[in-house]
Amino acid sequence: MMGQKYYSFAYILLPDELMATQLIIDSATKLCLEIEADKEGSADLESLYIKAIFDLALLRQEHFVVTESASFYRLSLEQRAVVYLRDQREWSIEEIASTLGLEWDRLYCSLNLGRSKLMDMSIGSDLKASSKLW
């Protein structure tokens, strides 16, 4: 389902039901206005929508405090976006770079940092859990 896909991405960036829903609506409106400027219209609608959601989330993140406790939400917004698109949605590096408008080196940096932070946090919490058991 298309709505599910976009909502998941929006929620990953701003983990709040209301904020994610608003992000979906505002990005759709923004996209409607921007498509006029895109004379060629070669880019597909999905990546344009993802880009619109990402850009708006970047603008809104400073007014937003993440309250979700999952370790994934401790990553930066860019790291969350990149790790989600690569590891969950299985997008190629090229697709992610062109959609989010990131340079390759920055993209690799975000991806690897995000992955390693996530693994560190997971291993740390696993160790804590096992020490409690002992």
């Binding site: 389902m1 599910q4 909502y7 039901e17 999952a70 790790v83 969950q88 992955r115």
Partner: peptide, 17 residues
């Protein structure tokens, strides 16, 4: 890769969406 995939939260569409 599997571990990371497992750590990414699954988001479901709210009923009233």
């Amino acid at each position: 890769a599997q571990k990371i995939r497992g750590l990414i939260p699954k988001v479901s569409l709210p009923d009233h969406f």
